[in-house]
Design a binder for these strands. Sequence first.
DNA 1: TGAGTGACTGGAT
DNA 2: CATCCAGCCACTC
Length: 126
Amino acid sequence: MTTYDRIYAIVRQIPPGQVATYGQVAELAGLIGKPRLVGYALYRVDMADDIPWQRVINAKGEVSHSVLRNGTDYLQRAILEEEGIEFNAKGRVDLKRYRWRPSEALIEQAMGVMGDGGDGEMGRWV
DNA sequence: TGAGTGACTGGAT
DNA sequence: CATCCAGCCACTC
């Protein structure tokens, strides 16, 4: 079980029509404070894999652009719109409306990975 | 093997 | 709001 495996496992659980932020995925993968790793992991993922990489966007609610992505950033927005997610005039999505709400079971599992006793702070994403 | 780099974030300004 | 900055760590020469 590698760091990337955990990241991919989380991303695969994001349902269609919803999005998660890099930081959110990082937390659930037991990588609090290391969202950059999520971005790096997604950069390496292949289009052919069954990983919904398009559902991961940055904390500002916009798709992160980079020349390294060779145009897949625009494709990402197109796919999300296909799933019913709306972008405003500034190219952002309303996170309050589309942000993925992980199940409690998943959160507890993440807590376990972190070796935490569980502080019951469930309200963070609600 | 060590320095550079990046699909990022949160807090300060 | 928008910017700037330091922290983070796997990966690549």
